[in-house]
């Protein structure tokens, strides 16, 4: 298609896609949370303030619960039309109605403050809860699937209402030392598809039609507490709480996770 449509503020859509790669947000004195650097152009009078700006305290208290990601987000405020895009990835908006949806942190572009943002227990994912609209990017159009389903980790964009995202490893990891070595080194042929994410229960799983990921945003680490997944690797000699069976300090030359595969 030739880009023969010339847009001005009166012809730009209101809270809709301009083309599959660009989304237009209509600000009418309202506020939107937006990931840094995703705004490409705007008409009108819009200001951008970092989360943590004093005047936004109340807003942040009600709808932003992710200290780790605070540095990546800004609040757009004012009136006008604002265009969002990300690396020429497909951009779509989703409406949540008293729902919850978890999405890869790099893929979320913007959301209305009527939603509240929380960090998912699964590292690298963010959960949105409430009613409102958000905008997310994907490489290729998004496909909606019903569980039970196993998906490739790189194709996963997010999921809604599913209570049980978990890892699934194919049986080969059990088949002896050679199986473990093969999976670890790729020697002897690994299909690259031995590991999937598995979803069961009621809900929807969102997949993108390619395995190209948006680079993860540097998110820091979650608090180093017992019981928090991804709270940093257990330090040798500092093994408090993390490893369930007191992870021993790893000897140099020891073969990574092979020991665990064989229950050592």
């Amino acid at each position: 298609m030739n880009a023969s449509a010339v847009h001005d503020p009166s012809t730009l859509p209101s809270d809709d896609n301009v083309n599959p790669y660009t989304f237009c947000v209509d600000l009418k004195g309202s506020r939107w949370f937006l990931q840094k650097g995703k705004m490409i152009a705007y008409y009108g009078d819009v200001s951008f303030q970092g989360v943590g700006h004093g005047a936004l305290d109340r807003l942040v208290r009600t709808s932003f619960h992710s200290p780790m990601h605070a540095g990546d987000w800004v609040v757009a405020e004012g009136s006008g039309k604002m265009l969002l895009a990300d690396r020429a990835f497909d951009v779509n908006s989703y409406d949540l109605d008293e729902g919850n949806l978890t999405v890869r942190s790099g893929n979320l572009l913007a959301f209305e403050p009527s939603l509240s943002l929380k960090q998912s227990i699964v590292p690298g994912f963010l959960t949105l809860i409430g009613t409102g609209t958000f905008v997310a990017a994907s490489n290729g159009p998004v496909v909606f699937m019903e569980p039970p389903i196993r998906v490739d980790p790189q194709a996963l964009v997010g999921w809604a209402d599913c209570p049980s995202p978990c890892h699934h490893y194919d049986h080969a990891y059990l088949s002896g030392v050679l199986g473990g070595l093969r999976a670890l080194t790729g020697i002897g042929g690994a299909s690259g598809e031995e590991h999937q994410f598995e979803f069961v229960g009621a809900g929807t799983v969102l997949l993108q039609s390619s395995e190209a990921l948006l680079p993860e945003r540097g998110t820091g680490t979650v608090p180093h507490e017992p019981g928090v997944p991804g709270g940093g690797a257990p330090h040798p000699g500092h093994g408090s709480g993390q490893g369930s069976h007191g992870s021993a300090p790893r000897l140099p030359g020891q073969l990574g996770d092979l020991q665990r595969r064989f229950g050592l």
Binding site: M1, A3, A5, V6, H7, D8, P9, V18, N19, Y21, T22, I40, A41, Y42, Y43, G44, V46, L83, A85, R87, A88
Partner: peptide
């Protein structure tokens, strides 16, 4: 990605 063409008029400046 496909370029978006935006019109600027004296009434509507663009950033």
């Amino acid at each position: 990605g496909p370029a978006v063409v935006l019109r600027v008029t004296p009434r509507y400046p663009l950033s």
